[in-house]
């Protein structure tokens, strides 16, 4: 079975096919995303300096082209004399890790709930969807603050909190899809063929929501990164001294009138990544829509 699917992949992945499927890709967001992932994974190796090394002697160095700046610290140093470029590079790792894990967890739970609730209907649907309503109506920032003050701040806790609040969004949108797919004659024919409920959900319903799942996930990356940055900004995210974009922006706010770049640079990084994921998500949405597939 594995060999079979491998063979299929190799047959499908011929060069003209890849070239055709890449037609019309938004290049700029794609380059930003690739950069984000590479930097996020190999941050420690790529950083020119140790992002944690404090050196009061060289604190608050400006950008390299300004007066007093040096090419050794191209983006300057922060209030403790740490290299901003290295901190930005290493800080991307936190955003990447958090967003990937949260999306994986939330998408799985959301899809599962959507398929089960949508297909089975009845009281299962009612209970699961009321749960979704409840979670979606809770003020997640306040809950996150409370949660952090009880169990402490940290990457793992951010992931837990964000996952809890991210899956209902998936569940609600995907359930609508499931309700639509359920009406298809092919589902009815599967019942006629004697397929069990589990089989119908797994083999007939789920494959048909994958497109939507992928699109929502891409669009979600941005908001997860923003949420993580927000939590780090208000101090319940990644604890210091580990660099995170949100925390860096928070540190820089105090110097906004004198050393504005300290707050602006992490902000620019966040904006670039979030914008790129949204643009890619939009492109994917159109690309995966069967109505547009022939174009």
């Amino acid at each position: 079975m594995i060999i079979g699917s491998l063979r299929r992949v190799t047959r499908y992945a011929s060069w003209p096919r890849i070239r055709k499927s890449l037609k019309g890709v938004p290049w700029f967001p794609l380059v930003i995303m690739v950069l984000f992932v590479v930097v996020g994974v190999f941050g420690r190796q790529l950083a020119p300096h140790d992002p944690l090394k404090i050196d009061i002697e060289i604190r608050l160095l400006p950008l390299f082209f300004m007066k007093g700046g040096s090419l050794q610290y191209p983006l300057g140093t922060d209030h403790l004399g740490r290299d901003v470029l290295s901190r930005l590079i290493v800080g991307s790792g936190v955003s990447l890790q958090v967003s990937l894990v949260v999306i994986a967890v939330a998408a799985s739970i959301g899809a599962l709930v959507a398929v089960v609730a949508g297909y089975l209907g009845g009281w299962v649907d009612t209970i699961l969807m009321r749960l979704v309503d409840i979670i979606m109506s809770m003020p997640w920032i306040i809950i996150a603050l409370v949660f952090a003050s009880i169990v402490g701040a940290g990457v793992r806790n951010i992931i837990i909190i964000l996952s809890i609040f991210a899956w209902p969004g998936y569940a609600r949108v995907l359930r609508g899809e499931v309700l639509r797919i359920k009406q298809g004659d092919f589902v009815r024919l599967a019942v006629v063929a004697g397929a069990s409920k589990a089989r119908i959900m797994l083999r007939h319903i789920f494959p048909n929501i994958v497109n939507t799942l992928v699109v929502i996930s891409t669009l979600q990356v941005g908001s997860i990164i923003l949420a993580e940055a927000g939590l780090s900004f208000i101090g319940v995210g990644v604890p210091p001294p580990r660099p995170a974009w949100g925390a860096m922006a928070a540190d820089g706010v105090g110097y906004i009138f004198t050393q504005w770049w300290l707050a602006v640079l992490p902000g620019v990084a966040i904006v670039l990544v979030v914008m790129s994921t949204n643009l890619l998500g939009d492109w994917l949405r159109v690309r995966l829509d069967p109505k547009f597939r022939q174009l």
Partner: peptide, 20 residues
């Protein structure tokens, strides 16, 4: 019984799972 009774429906676009 399920194997002995089968069906063909009107809309051939809706009756075949698009992902299989």
């Amino acid at each position: 019984y399920r194997a002995s009774v089968q069906a063909v429906f009107q809309d051939p676009y809706s009756s075949l799972s698009p992902r299989m």
